[in-house]
Simulated assay, not measured.
Amino acid sequence: MKKQTMLTYLDERISKKITEYDVAIDWDKANHTIEVIVRLFGENKSLVEIDDAQGVASEEEIIEFEDGILFYNPQKSTISEEDFLAVIPYEGKKGISRAMVDGFVDYLNEVLDQGQSDLLDFLADDSEEAIFELVWKNEDLLKHMEAYQEKDGDEYLSYPSY
């Protein structure tokens, strides 16, 4: 059996734990990054005009919101942190701890649960919010990771070879 990498393990954990949301993984071999792309959908019942991040207005009946979390190699990746909900470094070929991936998937599911609720509130007629965005707190991610680390130790998942 082939050894699991951070990419294969991440894909497996997301498939098992995050079943209510649209999540995709994009591996950019040249830039040494793995992006987890999330999409939330909400019904725009009152057909309120909504501007996206690029300023494009939409009155569509179904609104799609997309964001991404990036795993990157600090020594080799070229990234722009503000383009992502969160950025998480990994340790080159060594990869990332299994506890971090497990904690990440649990926390991402919580972020998406809260985000879906917030999006539906945002689209409701009585919403007072001017902007919708997902909320990510690295300290909450670390709490999830530490819980797995206490239980499972420091096993690492290597970065995939191509």
Rank of each mutant, 00 (worst) to 15 (best):
I96D: 00
G92F: 01
L47C: 03
F122P: 05
R39E: 10
F122H: 03
Y162C: 03
I18Y: 06
S158H: 10
D22Q: 15
K76S: 08
E12D: 14
L10F: 07
K16I: 05
A57L: 09
D126W: 12
L70K: 05
V87S: 13
K16N: 10
I18K: 03
Q75F: 10
K151N: 09
S80W: 08
A53K: 11
L47A: 06
V87K: 03
H144M: 12
G92R: 00
F41G: 05
I79V: 14
G95H: 05
S158A: 15
Y156E: 09
S58T: 15
I88R: 00
S46F: 13
S77N: 09
D126C: 03
F84Y: 15
L119T: 01
I79F: 11
E49T: 13
D11Q: 14
K45E: 13
A24Y: 11
E150L: 05
L134N: 03
M145E: 15
D83W: 07
D28Q: 09
Q54H: 09
D113G: 01
K151E: 12
M100I: 10
E60Y: 06
E60A: 15
V36P: 01
A53R: 10
P89W: 00
F71W: 04
M145W: 07
V87P: 04
A99W: 04
E82T: 10
F132W: 03
S161W: 03
I88K: 01
F65K: 01
I14L: 12
T33K: 09
Y156V: 13
E43C: 10
S161M: 05
E128W: 11
I96C: 02
K76L: 15
G68C: 06
V36K: 00
Q54R: 11
K29L: 12
K94V: 03
G42H: 01
F41V: 00
E64V: 12
Y9P: 07
H144N: 11
D52E: 05
Q54C: 09
G42V: 00
A86G: 01
V105D: 04
E139R: 08
D22G: 08
L47Y: 07
E60W: 04
I50M: 04
R13Q: 15
I18F: 08
V36L: 02
F104V: 00
L157E: 07
L120G: 06
S158Y: 09
S58H: 05
E155T: 04
R13H: 08
T78D: 09
I131G: 04
A124D: 15
G55M: 09
L85T: 00
A99I: 05
S161G: 02
V101P: 04
I131R: 10
N31Y: 08
V23W: 09
D126M: 04
G103H: 03
K17M: 07
N31S: 05
D22L: 13
T8V: 10
L112A: 05
